[in-house]
Nucleic acid binder design. Sequence first.
DNA 1: ACATAATGAATACAGTGCATACATATCGAT
DNA 2: ATCGATATGTATGCACTGTATTCATTATGT
Lengths: 188, 188
Amino acid sequence: MRTAYHHGNLREALLSVAREQLAANPGTELSLRELARLIGVSPHAPYRHFPGKDGVREALAAQGYRELTRAAEEAANTDRPLHVLAHEFARIAAMEPGLLRLTIEHDFTGATADGEAALARDEWFAALVAVVEAAGGKPASTVYRKAAAVWAVLLGVARLRSHGAVGLLEGPLLPDAGELAELVAGVR
Amino acid sequence: MRTAYHHGNLREALLSVAREQLAANPGTELSLRELARLIGVSPHAPYRHFPGKDGVREALAAQGYRELTRAAEEAANTDRPLHVLAHEFARIAAMEPGLLRLTIEHDFTGATADGEAALARDEWFAALVAVVEAAGGKPASTVYRKAAAVWAVLLGVARLRSHGAVGLLEGPLLPDAGELAELVAGVR
DNA sequence: ACATAATGAATACAGTGCATACATATCGAT
DNA sequence: ATCGATATGTATGCACTGTATTCATTATGT
């Protein structure tokens, strides 16, 4: 087969390879040129599908939030929603730490309030609210406040677990995200 | 005055200007060359004082942890240690968001278990443990577990507040780090 | 005073994000 | 089916970055 001039699905190929790169070495910056190289396309080709590097990150952050949303939707139908959500969150953090980091960091760096990532984030928060509602608990506060507190706990524990990888906090010392989430949500 | 060939205090000047840069535009990567340019020294001069860019980040992360340690030591002598600590943490996050971000991210990216930053981080955790002890509370768990939970809450709320800057969670919805900290520590 | 170490400059190279200009494939109206 | 418009990829180039090598200047200890 003589190489096709057009890739055919470059946009998704870029995102796919980008996620592989994030998985292979989390904590490293993506390189657009390297993505193009791996796919076998010219250095400038990605710019036909994204406005630039930040555009790729935006799309990836949206994917990250969608994974979180899916986890929340699954958790909402179980008998201990917050526990299950925390477990799923931890699983994602372990399987795709690079993607989760990029997702979490995204708002801090390239923040546009109406971008794809921001929309995906809002959907994730809505799903999180549903989880908190499903979990029940004392109505000491609004469900939104509870959801925000749960979100904070999930973020904090995830970050702490990546800290722990270099030594300080070993397993038994680490807080259990599920228990903490139930605690701050007023459940149990 | 004819310009001195040797700067005299380049190492500290680099760190100082780096913090200014982080404060001026948080969320942007540092540039060694720009630091050198701002100070008025050759592009390679910083390499006499740091092994490379990661070395500068390491030193900055250590400074960040030391600021947190100082905040914890102040808080330990008050009548509501966790509340005061949370307030100080939030103040640092507001005043120097770039430095705090770099500090928090450091372990994730350039992790050496015995570097300057790792030592500073351990000291911060020790100070945090002291705060939790000062706060008292039910001894349902070890003070280390409580401290880790408090740390997670501080990290999570700080991250959430930087999210909030782009819209989703407005003030009244955001969890109060102090109350959450006391909750997960079993105080009150 | 003078050898030596510490600190800075000059130059160079590979890698990156991105812009402009050009080439080829795809697709819709006729 | 043809043919022009559009989408998608290539070629080339620029400014910037981190870092290595080599050389110049200053500080320092005996």
